[in-house]
Design a protein around this nucleic acid. Structure first.
Lengths: 218, 218
DNA sequence: CCTGCTATCAACCTTTTGGTTGATGGCGTT
DNA sequence: AACGCCATCAACCAAAAGGTTGATAGCAGG
């Protein structure tokens, strides 16, 4: 293949951010932005379209929060089900555990923050294109810190519950949403309270937000 | 002055966004980005520096949320105290009541959203440079709506309660903290729920945070 | 002066949560 | 195979929160 250019698809609902990434990446050697999409569904279509044209995408740069349409996590999952799925590099604003976990679980090859210096983004794209994993230093540090300092680790399910909790849903509503019984919700909550060292849902949210386990409503 | 170019200062903590705005604006006729700043304090210095150089800034494009340093509202206030203060056009992601009101109160000449189409941003910058006010359609609509349908305003005491609420305190604890009876706490809560359109404390916090009535733990 | 809003409190009742105990099955590790 | 962790559910009880009615008092505005 002789080191052709790295072919990139940008997925972000903000035209300004897309323009910024395009400008930033094309200034570097070896990068081409071959397509853009404002949300996840369009991104999947673009990847397929370019694949059948014989001009496959090498790396997808994906935002997590899209105003409308398919969000980044769902899009990543959808992309990973395609044959010859390209690596997906998440590029977002927030570095909460919930976001990171969801992204990694969906099959993302990396997790970068939008306020990262250009050079960092450049090397992350390169790593992703090479099939490697690329984590932002902040993200990596957070993961390392949590290994050294065995802070109580919430399971993915527990984080999921916390997120619904933070929207103000009752146990009954959460149960319905997750297709489990109210009893199970209560069991999860007891475990969450235990791990966070609190004894009610409101305090749990407060602690979870300040520890960046979840992101507050916004 | 013969219709010189409009000289712009970009203020945003994300290099990606700055690059995007720069690329977007310089593609249009009549715009020059003369400086950039990652946060408010640096922005004020830039404006002053360029003023003494005899190359004054015509429009400041300002984000509201900066990771570190002076935030957009404070920076706008600071700029407005300078002699020959340039118009400040807010360009941000969120269009909450609190943000818009704070920005307008601080003296902003306009309020645009980052997901706006380039053409809209272009004309907003032009309006601001001409000394006019430029509001994004979404923002204008929201303001109109709030005039017709004034949002319930929480009393100072109610906000005080909300703040304690968000830390996870029980009614009893809040009562003790504020030297009032638990009954009074409950009465306040009923009023708060009523005004926010919710029916439990967790949802109240969620709404209050998303409306920026209080700021979340962090 | 009357009206409305705010802040305070009480009594009462219903619903929701929290806390406990115990049980099942899956999954991965030792 | 045995152990631990996770996710699921049930039944039960105690505590907290939610909802209602009603009352008092201050203070601002028409």
């Amino acid at each position: 293949m002789l080191m052709g250019e790295i072919r990139i698809l940008l997925v972000d609902d903000h035209p300004v951010v897309r323009a910024g990434l395009r400008a930033m990446l094309t200034e570097f050697e070896g990068f081409t932005v071959v397509a853009e999409a404002p949300e996840g569904a369009a991104a999947v279509k673009e990847v397929q379209r370019l694949a059948v044209l014989g001009e496959p995408v090498d790396v997808v740069l994906m935002d997590l929060q899209m105003g409308e349409g398919m969000d980044g996590v769902s899009a990543t999952k959808a992309l990973k089900e395609l044959p010859d799925a390209p690596p997906v590099l998440i590029l977002t604003t927030y570095d909460t555990d919930a976001d990171i976990l969801a992204a990694v679980e969906a099959g993302a090859s990396g997790y970068m923050l939008k306020d990262a210096p250009p050079e960092q983004i450049r090397s992350a794209v390169q790593s992703a294109a090479a099939g490697q994993t690329a984590l932002a230093p902040e993200v990596a540090a957070r993961l390392m810190g949590r290994i050294r300092n065995p802070a109580p680790v919430l399971s993915a399910r527990e984080v999921e519950l916390l997120e619904l909790l933070s929207t103000g849903m009752s146990n009954k509503a959460i149960a319905k949403e997750l297709f489990i019984s109210e009893a199970t919700v209560k069991t999860h909550l007891v475990h969450i309270y235990d791990k966070l060292g609190v004894d009610n849902r409101t305090a749990a949210i407060s602690v979870a937000v300040s520890r960046r386990i979840i992101r507050s409503a916004g």
